[in-house]
Design a protein around this nucleic acid. Structure first.
Length: 556
RNA sequence: GGUGCUAUCGUCUAGCGGUUAGGACAAAAGAUUCUCAAUCUUUAAACCGGGGUUCGAUUCCCCGUAGCACUACCA
């Protein structure tokens, strides 16, 4: 299995380089994951760098969020910025961050001096020039001239160091005039980009514009310059990123060349996009809101615009399920395997098995994965995860506290209860919907169930049953034994069955009508696990109490 | 508009010239059962269109069509 890509003699070093402009999009998570899998498989390094060259889009807390999310998912960072290992901090969004490695700083906003040097290099070598055109002037130009592009055809009509006397350029720059540095793209050249997923991509340089590399207004480079300089300085061997970057890849190749770094230029791999589940287009936050599923790994409170975005973690997803789900959205192994642990992904992942086409985000399959991973957890593990939810729910029932005075007993029974209902839930919080009647006696009865299962004779049946059950000893109440069914399979039979079934048969009441009425008394509806499992957990006193309550409540 | 990328069941995908086109999610039916689920079994469901190349194309090439991405002093 594994990789057929030639990694050359260089050690594999990949990076995930998000912008701190908000919550980390799930597509970004997948990009990080693929980078991580690739690095681990080749015994390489996974770096994390923050690309915060746009000061206007910075969102407080976004950086912490990104690192926390990767940590939660088990995507480990070897170099750069990462969450300090240890106990989860109690206050949300206040995790500790550390920077490790010899290639720092790892925030681009802290690398200004470094970029200055390389901007100057490009300027001196004639690969770049200074331009004074204001955003307003450019906007006007675009409005006037259809398909206006700042390039070889138009640059000689603009206000820049190519068209102005050197002295004036110097005077303006020293006078504090705002300017940008643009890359001078040479026309009429076919630029070849080798992509590990798509093969050879060729774009003519005529369609490239003279990209802004640096803006004096905030003394920061733009993405393109910072990205190339940093990838080079950080000795990145493979750039694995989203397909939205493919159109600018030729520009990046040209930049590597302009710097004279073509021999150590990284390999490129452009990943297919994650699309909305319905219709077409890139998956966005709006789609999640509209269709009711998270688009982010963690819940995020955006301090900038006050919005709250739901997250997979808070929705009850297990990190391993999210990883597995995401891994298969755009990648597939050689066989029919669906369940992959992180270790198996690291072993089997390969870039040449990544799809070329975009993948619609299939939330239903994500649910299924979570269900699968939930079943793999022990009842004790699930109990621990469920406890906070349970406490919160019970608090909202404080009026009925008497109904579960035996709460401490129930707590000790929690793993058992979870074992009875876990196979029917996809998420931990759903355990409450499935198991609430174990903790709180029904106060109302489901109308549909009553209509179908609670008959005229039901109160009388329940009254008779009460008499039978009262006579059962505390020990017999919980007693069960192994026996054989008609097909010779070993099954568990409850002692209470031996009491109740013969009585129903003798009176010819019908098992369905009696047992469903009984179930309604205990659960409040025609649902839930096997009835004797319920009576076992509830205990004799609580069971009888619920039956009496129901008989009174449902008399009419 | 321009440039690029992409194209197998509703969805995620397997297939790398010859297959009854496979798996999974979702859907439907049945089994099971005191109920609702779960589970098990089964069913239905696809090669965008047209040209080539070839003895033979889902597969290779071209054109068309469609979808997407990019086209900022954002990343």
């Amino acid at each position: 299995m594994g990789e057929t890509v030639n990694t050359g003699n260089r050690p594999v070093r990949v990076r995930f380089a998000p912008s701190p402009t908000g919550a980390l999009h799930i597509g970004g998570v997948r990009t990080a994951l693929y980078n991580y899998l690739f690095a681990r498989q080749h015994g390489g390094q996974m770096l994390l760098r923050i690309e915060d060259t746009d000061s206007t889009r910075f969102v407080p807390g976004a950086e912490e969020y990104i690192l926390e999310a990767l940590d939660w998912l088990g995507i480990e960072i070897d170099e750069g910025l990462r969450k300090v290992k240890g106990e989860r901090t109690k206050v949300k969004g206040s995790i500790e961050i550390e920077a490790v490695g010899e290639h720092g700083p790892y925030r681009q906003s802290e690398r200004r001096e470094i970029y200055h040097k390389y901007v100057k290099q490009l300027l001196d070598s004639g690969h770049a020039y200074i331009a004074f055109d204001t955003p307003e002037e450019l906007e006007k130009k675009r409005a006037e001239i259809p398909n206006f592009q700042y390039d070889a055809r138009t640059r000689m009509q603009m206000r820049n160091s190519l068209t102005m006397p050197a002295e004036e350029v110097t005077r303006l720059v020293e006078g504090g005039e705002k300017y940008v540095v643009r890359f001078k793209v040479e026309p009429d050249e076919d630029v070849h980009v080798h992509d590990l997923i798509r093969g050879e991509v060729v774009i003519n340089s005529n369609i490239l514009d003279d990209k802004v590399l640096y803006k004096s207004a905030d003394d920061l480079p733009t993405y393109h310059l910072a990205n190339i300089v940093d990838d080079h300085l950080m000795e990145i061997s493979h750039v694995i990123r989203g397909e939205e970057w493919l159109p600018s890849a030729p520009l990046h190749v040209l930049l590597y060349r302009a710097f004279g770094w073509q021999d150590t230029m990284p390999e490129f791999a452009h990943l297919p996009l994650l699309l909305k589940p319905d219709g077409n287009g890139k998956l966005s936050k709006r789609d999640g809101d509209r269709l009711g599923f998270p688009v982010f790994p963690l819940e995020f409170h955006n301090q900038k615009d006050g919005t709250v975005s739901s997250g997979y973690r808070e929705s009850g997803y297990l990190p391993e399920a999210v990883i597995n789900f995401l891994a298969l959205l755009g990648w597939h192994g050689t066989g029919d395997q669906e369940m992959y642990s992180m270790e198996e992904l690291i072993r089997d992942f390969s870039l040449d098995r990544v799809s070329k086409s975009g993948a619609k985000f299939d939330y239903e399959k994500g649910k299924w994965f979570n269900h699968q991973y939930l079943q793999l957890k022990t009842n004790e593990e699930l109990a621990e995860m469920f406890l906070p939810v349970l406490k919160e729910k019970l608090a909202s029932f404080n009026l009925q506290l008497d109904d579960f005075s035996q709460l401490s007993t129930l707590n000790s029974q929690l793993p058992k209860i979870i074992g009875l209902v876990k196979e029917r839930v996809n998420f931990v919080p759903e355990l409450w919907e499935q198991a609430n009647f174990f903790f709180v006696a029904p106060t109302e009865y489901d109308e549909k169930s009553l209509k179908k299962r609670w008959k005229e004779d039901s109160p009388r049946h329940m009254q008779e049953m009460l008499t039978l059950l009262e006579a059962v000893s505390e020990e017999d109440w919980h007693r069960s034994y192994e026996t054989q069914d008609d097909n010779g399979n070993t099954v568990i039979r409850w002692h209470l069955d031996d009491i109740i079934m013969p009585w129903i048969a003798e009176k010819e009441y019908g098992v369905g009508i009696v047992m469903n009425a009984f179930r309604i008394c205990l659960v409040g509806a025609a649902r839930g696990p096997h009835i004797w499992n319920i009576t076992d957990v509830l205990g004799k006193a609580e069971t009888l109490k619920r039956v009496r309550t129901a008989i009174l409540a449902l008399k009419s």
